[in-house]
């Protein structure tokens, strides 16, 4: 069975209090949102999360056979993330890489690709998601557009941090929320989206993913652009399910939300917890069913890594002006392409 050998999250140090944004444009908002520093990119954040996941799995990057990366905000159409993360951590040569994008569901597309790779080859795969969501001053999404990264290492060891029972897909082709490159999203009609989109597809995907699980789920991760939608999806999962989420401290971080919340769950859940992890995106949803193992090596404290909870508690608050400025790409004078 494919397992999660280690997981790690990365939350930028800078945060903005949502009240600060509400003060500029009216309304009310609570919580805070992660803001990537000017020198942070999806690549640098992915590298951070991948380093933690590798440390937890007690693996060197040179031992990886595949690296898959998901992002919906990589500013470059051609450049990729996976190969850069792989090389940075020492994986080169006969290493399969893949970049997944175009939908927040790319998170589970990449996860599923990693799982298939491990099942087919017996190798070890690193899967990362990293995003910094764009903002437009005054847009409804501005207070919640966050930045983060998360990563998992997948292998077929029997004593790894969590056993992955199945990854189930529910593809409908229905698309409401959409977004142009560098722009905030057009959410469309939320009621229609909830009925025909999220609400309609998550329960079926979750049920099929859990078919091989030993128990009903105790906890759930649901990556969605807003917390109401995510909480609604959790409520559709049968039984008493705890919603594990970083939304109140990070905001929505695209594909990273799935991996970050999954890492937070694996770091905090009791051994034996069965969980469901869902990513929703254009055209459907995917669900991953897993069970956290007792005293798994990949959940032990690893040297020189911080937990998601510790990173949430390590914050420096920025002003509204800084929050906008940090999201602009700096133009470096005197440096030109060769």
């Amino acid at each position: 069975m494919v397992s999660i050998a280690g997981a790690g999250g990365y939350v930028p140090r800078y945060r903005i209090e949502r009240e600060e944004i509400a003060r500029q444009h009216g309304g009310a908002a609570s919580g805070e949102t992660a803001v990537a520093a000017r020198d942070e990119t999806p690549v640098t954040m992915a590298v951070e999360a991948a380093g933690t996941a590798l440390a937890r799995a007690d693996l060197r990057g040179t031992e990886l056979d595949a690296v898959f990366a998901a992002s919906v905000t990589d500013p470059l159409a051609e450049h990729g993330i996976a190969a850069h993360v792989a090389y940075r951590h020492g994986a080169e040569g006969d290493v399969r890489t893949g970049d997944f994008r175009g939908s927040p569901r790319a998170a589970t597309d990449a996860f599923a690709a990693g799982r298939h790779f491990v099942a087919a080859t017996g190798g070890t795969a690193l899967v990362v998601g990293a995003d910094q969501m764009p903002v437009e001053p005054g847009h409804d999404d501005e207070p919640y557009s966050g930045a983060a990264a998360g990563a998992v290492v997948l292998d077929d060891a029997d004593d790894a941090a969590a056993a992955v029972h199945d990854v189930a897909a529910n593809t409908t082709g229905f698309v409401e929320r959409h977004r142009e490159h560098g722009e905030p999203a057009e959410a469309g009609d939320r009621r229609v989206a909830a009925e025909m989109g999220f609400g309609g597809v998550v329960p079926d995907a979750a049920e099929r993913a859990l078919a091989e699980a030993p128990d009903a789920p105790d906890a759930a991760v649901v990556a969605a652009p807003d917390q109401r939608t995510a909480a609604g999806a959790v409520s559709e999962i049968p039984g008493e399910v705890e919603h594990v989420s970083t939304f109140d401290r990070v905001g929505y971080a695209g594909t990273a939300t799935f991996f970050l919340d999954l890492a937070h769950l694996l770091e905090t859940a009791a051994g034996g917890t069965t969980a469901i992890a869902v990513a929703y995106g254009a055209g459907g949803a995917d669900a991953v069913a897993l069970t956290v193992r007792d005293e798994a090596p990949g959940r032990d404290e690893a040297a020189d890594v911080t937990t998601v909870a510790e990173q949430l508690a390590s914050a420096e608050y920025v002003t509204y002006a800084e929050h906008l400025r940090y999201r602009e790409r700096p133009e470096y004078e005197g440096v030109t392409a060769e």
Partner: peptide
């Protein structure tokens, strides 16, 4: 070194948003 210097030190499990 900066854990807990500005944040409240709590992880978020089951947090409810305002949206």
């Amino acid at each position: 070194e900066s854990i807990g210097t500005d944040g409240d030190g709590a992880g978020d499990r089951g947090g409810e948003g305002e949206r």
